[in-house]
Design a binder for these strands. Structure first.
Lengths: 351, 351
DNA sequence: GCTAGCACTCTTTATTGCCGAGTGCTAAGG
DNA sequence: CCTTAGCACTCGGCAATAAAGAGTGCTAGC
């Protein structure tokens, strides 16, 4: 028995690592199973294909590569990719061209809605994959000002401005029309009451007050709160995400399955699962990578997700990243996502 | 020579029309070239396949059908579909189920933004194709109220409410920070000046005044106008469109070409060409149909577009419709689009 | 531990032959 | 003049077969 066997099969030699790295890099480039001959040349070690075959057999035993069929080359498995990104990978920092493009894009941008949408576009443009940006949940968003305007019919337009400068509006159907003066009074009351308070607090308070103390409040207060409730609720927001460049995914041969693609796109539109997935990334700081099935979402089985958190003023508020085929150019993509997150954070920093 | 030849080949007999109709209906159902035997049964006229073949040959001469290859059945050409929808088609009014679903959807809806988006979803849901709704250009939208709020940095948040109850906001970078009082004063000035006026008028006036009469205005007025300009401009809007259910198109075999589909989806995202196309539909009232190449956009070559205009209070303001494969169920789709447009018009009617 | 050689496996591609569907034409019948 | 039956012909689709190419695993020798 060899030393490997004594060590329990779970050690991977320096050389094997080198081979694995070369294999994955090659596979990322060509997308074709890598044979022993090809790999023998790639490593630069001047070994014969037969030797390479031995090593490949070891790698297969360890579960890092597999062959699609008897006489094809080897293809990285999820475990292989995992090991690669964790221990082997040498990142390739963004080219000057990429950097320039990114800086330029971030200089153009104005308000935060456009900013986030454009960031997802930027990501998709740079990587030729799908870019996603999760919009923060407005966690530290405060009530700033509310405005109530009468519309035709028994409808009221409620506009809420938050401390972050976001504007939310909502049309509320009421049981009777209101006069402008009534609404103005109600708005004044709400503004006095809530200005500067955290939105979550405001909502909690509204809910409680509306439930419990109907009798103790006068008509005006009650009315005002009923009107404010919907718009505050919508402003607090559940978090949303922008996805750009979905269609880029159609260009990858390995995903060229109309049925699956449709499901994937539909999932992007629903956004729910994606949101949930991104939510999991927000806890860990920095770059996170989900490879293939690791995400736990069947639809993403042949896809990988590379994400990074971004921040406003020290606090992590959101996640951005790219979705692409498992066979993506990790050495390039990872720093791109990383830098984008930093640039976005910088752009969001209050001046 | 037969009578047909004397008449110059361009007459199509009653019977031939009947056959063409049956052929197209069949082809819409099955998506497969229709052979003489099949068609002989379908017409109900109890004729032999051979007879049918003669008629089909005539139809082919006239350019209404063609055969993909020697021994396939016949398939309608664009001209064939055209003749069909213009002269042959018997529409199939929406089922009670469809109607109920439509009514139900329109009852749910609130503000106009959601309304239009949901309408496109509704269309796509009913037809299993892509639904589009072109958003009106806010032609008859009036200035109602403006609000100016200071943000951190030299930034001002401008909020504009229109007579239709739409809320537009925009962050404006200024060369120096403003005090709340200043902004309030400016807003008051603008509100006095413009409330109730048509947005187009307002914008025109702003542009003119900003250009010409810098000296004659006092500081406050000038400042106010500078602040108002961007948000008014964005509120006037260039017209936009919502597209829903793109992915449905992936399910049609005849469009199952990844490359073309990608281009099509990208075009949907750009929206520009689509907008232009829809613009052409707005001039003609009622239902319009573009079959295949008729649209003039190469990307839509195997697609058809069925549109109808909708109105607010007598005035045509927008277009909606569906995009699907040329082989779509026109007898069902046409009335669906028509009814949807009517329902939308009804929903938009000011109470 | 490395290498060469060899038999083996499996995919890919091309070739072939055949079946079925459908046509066009012709000639005969109402 | 319209309709029909019959017949030869064309073409796509399918399955079976063959050949080529790539790559492997194993063994024996260096």
């Amino acid at each position: 028995m060899s030393a490997k066997h004594i060590n329990g099969e779970n050690r991977i030699s320096e050389r094997a690592q080198h081979f694995l790295k070369a294999l994955i890099e090659r596979y990322i480039r060509d997308g074709q199973p890598v044979g022993s001959r090809t790999l023998a040349k790639d490593t630069g070690l001047d070994l014969s294909p037969a030797t390479v075959r031995n090593v490949m057999a070891d790698l297969e035993d360890l579960g890092f590569v597999s062959s699609p069929h008897t006489s094809a080359g080897r293809v990285p498995t999820v475990a292989g990719y995992r090991f690669f990104v964790d221990s082997l990978l040498t990142v390739r920092p963004p080219t000057d061209e990429d950097l320039a493009r990114m800086r330029w894009r971030f200089e153009q941008l104005t308000d935060s809605a456009t900013l986030l949408e454009n960031t997802s576009r930027l990501l998709s443009g740079l990587t030729h994959m799908a870019g996603v940006v999760m919009v923060p949940r407005h966690e530290r968003n405060a009530f700033r000002q509310i405005e109530l305007l009468p519309l035709s019919g028994a409808r009221v337009l409620a506009i809420l401005v938050t401390s972050e400068g976001e504007v939310h509006n909502r049309i509320i159907f009421t049981e009777r029309p209101f006069r402008p003066a009534e609404l103005e009074e109600a708005a004044n009351y709400l503004n006095q009451m809530f200005t500067g308070q955290d939105l979550r607090e405001v909502r909690k308070r509204l809910v409680e007050d509306l439930r419990q103390t109907h009798e103790r409040m006068d008509r005006l207060m009650l009315r005002a709160m009923q009107l404010a409730h919907p718009v505050v609720e919508s402003a607090e927001g559940r978090g949303d995400c922008h996805i750009a460049g979905q269609t880029n995914l159609m260009e990858f041969g390995e995903l060229a399955n109309l049925e699956r693609l449709k499901q994937l796109f539909d999932a992007f539109h629903q956004k729910r699962e994606i949101l949930h997935l991104l939510d999991r990334c927000i806890v860990a700081d920095g770059v996170q990578i989900f490879i293939g099935e690791e995400s736990g979402y069947g639809l993403l089985n042949d896809c990988s997700l590379v994400t990074a958190t971004y921040r406003i003023d020290q606090y992590v508020v959101g996640v951005l990243g790219v979705i692409g085929p498992t066979r993506m150019d990790y050495p390039r993509v990872i720093p791109l996502v990383d830098v984008t997150a930093r640039l976005l954070s910088a752009a969001l920093r209050p001046q």
